[in-house]
């Protein structure tokens, strides 16, 4: 935020007009990233500071019509899944999305999943048990259980995000978020976890519910901000 840089007054600061999370502006656009980086490094040649300069170039806008056409589809379940448990619905989604995720990994040569150190299905099972009020023993012992829970949730979010970005169409920051929280069983499961953990009297668990689970934007959309 420009206003934060104005308050802190770091020696040299380049304000950039990009969404939070993308300080270099555009993924997979080396030329764009290079322009931002060069502009930042050139501030080092100013003879005095502090310097706060505005970067003049916006990230290219994504065509809204293209975005609408490319909106990800809800994941359909077989008719015999109608009465399935939330966990089994998430496991079915994972199974259906796995091919897209495999494709994403092949295309990019990397994945941001694998932080939790547990399979996607086991992560979902751990989350479902906690959401049902019957937490299972943590799947790793080197970190507090609440951090394991957050990593399990993030593992699911990352898997779904990477999967849907491999599907046809144009995917925006907002469309990915809206799809996950509005149209998937995993999103619904995390809402159930949110409702459960918000009621907790345990400070770290309540902190997790209030800050590290559902994005503020989504909470405001559903009137739970």
């Amino acid at each position: 935020m420009r206003e934060h840089a104005e308050a802190i007054r770091p020696p040299r600061s380049l304000w950039v007009p990009f969404v939070l999370g993308r300080p270099l502006g555009v993924p997979n656009d080396a030329a764009f990233q290079r322009r931002v980086l060069v502009a930042a490094l050139n501030l080092l040649q100013r003879p005095s500071g502090p310097v706060l300069e505005d970067y003049p170039e916006d990230a290219p806008a994504i065509n809204v019509e293209d975005s609408q056409e490319g909106m990800a589809c809800p994941i359909s379940f077989a008719s015999d899944m109608a009465d399935a448990t939330p966990l089994n619905k998430v496991k079915a989604e994972i199974s259906q999305l796995q091919a897209w995720h495999d494709l994403a990994v092949r295309q990019r040569g990397r994945t941001a999943t694998g932080v939790a150190g547990v399979s996607f299905e086991a992560a979902a099972a751990f989350v479902a048990a906690w959401a049902a009020g019957t937490p299972a023993p943590a799947f790793r012992k080197d970190i507090p259980a609440i951090d394991a829970l957050r990593l399990a949730c993030d593992e699911l979010k990352t898997f779904y995000s990477e999967s849907v970005m491999a599907q046809p169409g144009t995917h925006t920051v907002e469309s990915i978020q809206d799809w996950f929280w509005g149209q998937t069983a995993a999103g619904k499961l995390l809402f159930e976890l949110h409702a459960r953990t918000l009621l907790s009297r345990d400070t770290p668990e309540k902190h997790f519910a209030e800050n590290n689970l559902v994005p503020r934007r989504i909470r405001h959309i559903i009137g739970n901000g």
């Binding site: 939070l20 993308r22 993924p27 994945t111 689970l213």
Partner: peptide
């Protein structure tokens, strides 16, 4: 949870 991760992904 309040910044975009899809770019990093």
């Amino acid at each position: 949870t309040n910044f975009d991760r899809s770019g990093f992904q």
